[in-house]
Write a protein that binds this DNA or RNA. Structure first.
Lengths: 117, 117
DNA sequence: CAAAGTGTGTACTATATATGACACATGACT
DNA sequence: AGTCATGTGTCATATATAGTACACACTTTG
């Protein structure tokens, strides 16, 4: 169950095919961790990194930070902060949408974005 | 900034006025922690308890677990799990609603609850 | 007034989290 | 053939998290 590591490695090796700046070492340096650490992360030898490191890694690899965080078993701190400001409202909303189909949620997103309130 | 502890203490002492089973000690025993620990928690001498303990405490005091968790700077694990299953969708939705007024969110909750999908 | 109950101070601890440092073997260029 | 880069194994560690255990002083209350 090393969803996270496998995915990171796959994406990185993909990028590497046309840009050799995506070696484990170079990526590690750019995101500010030791190569040995990133190696272990990719192989699932250790737990996924902290939120900050995961986000830097996502940016570096051109991945969606929220998606990578999800694979790391985390939820972005800024989302949590939003929820914590109005816990009842957001808790209800999210639980309500637990089983909703994707397009229903998307519709809500658009509805809200395109005005209405 | 001991929002959490102050609130717990206030609620507990309130309940205690007509039910002496709400002494710090008795509550501590019922939620399964040491009295000394609960004491420190209420005074903000230590960080808020774990999610599990916070939820037991909320139930014991008749408070909304999500609200108490929010005061503890946390977001319920089950909500996080829902978000992690569809990170992009929920991240967009939640950020979209960051500044929305309460009643707009409530409307969405109801809209979703009362069918439509 | 004795017994029981109340909250709290001090000291300790186990587990998890999030890495760093260094050395090493293998493979790829030059 | 030699240099350089690549990924990895081993060991160590700092900080945070989530409490326990015990003793003590004050206050009800029977």
């Amino acid at each position: 169950m090393t969803q996270f590591g496998d995915n990171v490695r796959a994406v990185r090796e993909q990028l590497r095919q046309d840009d050799r700046r995506f070696s484990l070492r170079q990526v590690a340096f750019r995101i500010g961790v030791e190569p040995a650490y990133l190696s272990k992360v990719e192989r699932g030898d250790v737990a996924p990194p902290s939120e900050a490191t995961t986000v830097r890694l996502a940016r570096e690899l051109g991945e969606d930070p929220d998606v990578l965080l999800a694979m790391a078993g985390k939820v972005s701190g800024d989302l949590q902060q939003i929820i914590r400001k109005r816990p009842r409202l957001f808790a209800d909303l999210i639980r309500q949408l637990r089983e909703a189909p994707d397009d229903a949620i998307l519709r809500v997103v658009r509805e809200v974005r395109d005005g209405e309130w």
